[in-house]
Design a binder for these strands. Structure first.
Lengths: 202, 202
DNA sequence: ACACAAGTTGACCATGCGGTCCGCTTATGC
DNA sequence: GCATAAGCGGACCGCATGGTCAACTTGTGT
């Protein structure tokens, strides 16, 4: 059998542990931000600290895995939204989902300020997401409802902007909807004013 | 002399040291974010670590002092902008100054995500700033150039939003101007759509 | 049933942090 | 000048963290 896999498949309990670890990490990060200790995550997952480092050589790579996972989640919902009938509504819904993600996950807000984004894994996920955003924007733009000088990158940026405005503090009241709408209005074609062009390097 | 100050005035060198400390802290925070060590700041200021803690009992209070200082800077420029002829331009310029502040200071971006904002000193400065923003917004709104349902709080929020969008990474190219304009367009009266109301608690 | 490798674990280590303390220096008032 | 207390500094402490390791457990193929 020439096409045989060289390495044995991972043990069953290892797979289980990995899963609990990922779940625990996702929860812990969401609740307390990216600076929860590895020990705490391990405890939460019901496994030893050593096991964590067996699955992820470093804490950085763990966080990278979680963050990139979140990005991919959003990319997936974005991709399904590409099938939606109304491009404008779809774009708004996409952005809404993005902000919701940020609001429900403290670590995700911090991620924007941190070096995690340098990580190749995260970079890749971000690029995938960018592609989806670009497609969604394209559709809306083609329909003329969105100003012509807006890129997918812009949409992503404005999305993170909206959730920043959403007051990451005790405000669970959903004030972010207000700001998202405000920003979304700025994206609309009607009443648009010319935008300063992006500097050459970008 | 009944109105005499109870405590002796601080020593001259103490004043000097305090000043270097503040300058060093401001620079260090701006460059490396809020997690620079106290020792590093002390070294940078050319004083001992103990001296830092003499002036500020805790690191938290140091950061609070710096952050509130920055907020006050912005409040000052805002106040002078109140005298400007064109309310719209004034508002835009105010927001521009705010974003510029964020972009030039890594710690300031992080501050939005952290607990520093709970600190009473910071709270007070933020309130002062809020007042100025409210006044500036009022003027612009009264002239009808800004949509009617916008508050000063909104302006502040959108300001921090803009600088979040400004890609706090290596991007020194000033792409944030683009996003600020985009957001500012969303604040304009023309083409505005009704905003979802703020939840009751806010 | 067995042997063995894959996997687990928690004690352990090095490091870096915020914060303390006490002996020393120095500005200040007379 | 001198006495005095305000100010200074850096060795030091306790603590938490990311990461390692060697002894032990357990799933798996035969």
């Amino acid at each position: 059998m020439p096409a045989e896999s060289q390495t044995r498949p991972p043990r069953a309990d290892a797979v289980r542990n990995r899963e609990s670890l990922l779940v625990a990490a996702r929860e812990a990060f969401a609740e307390h931000g990216m600076d929860v200790s590895v020990s705490e995550i391990a405890q939460r997952a019901g496994i030893g600290k050593g096991t964590v480092f067996r699955h992820f050589a470093t804490k950085e790579s763990l966080t990278a895995a979680i963050v990139s996972g979140r990005l991919d989640e959003l990319a997936v919902t974005g991709r399904t939204l590409l099938e939606a009938a109304d491009p404008e509504a779809a774009l708004l819904e996409f952005m809404t989902a993005g902000v919701e993600l940020h609001v429900s996950d403290r670590s995700f807000c911090q991620a924007a300020t941190t070096d995690v984004r340098r990580d190749p894994v995260v970079r890749a996920a971000a690029d995938r997401l960018s592609g989806v955003a670009e497609a969604l924007t394209d559709r809306a733009r083609r329909k003329g409802v969105i100003r012509g000088d807006i890129t997918g990158q812009d949409v992503i940026r404005m999305l993170t902007a909206a959730c920043q405005a959403a007051a990451p503090d005790e405000d669970v009241t959903g004030a972010w909807r207000r700001y998202l709408h405000l920003i979304f209005d700025g994206l609309r074609a009607e009443g648009a004013r010319p935008l300063p062009p992006l500097p050459p390097t970008a």
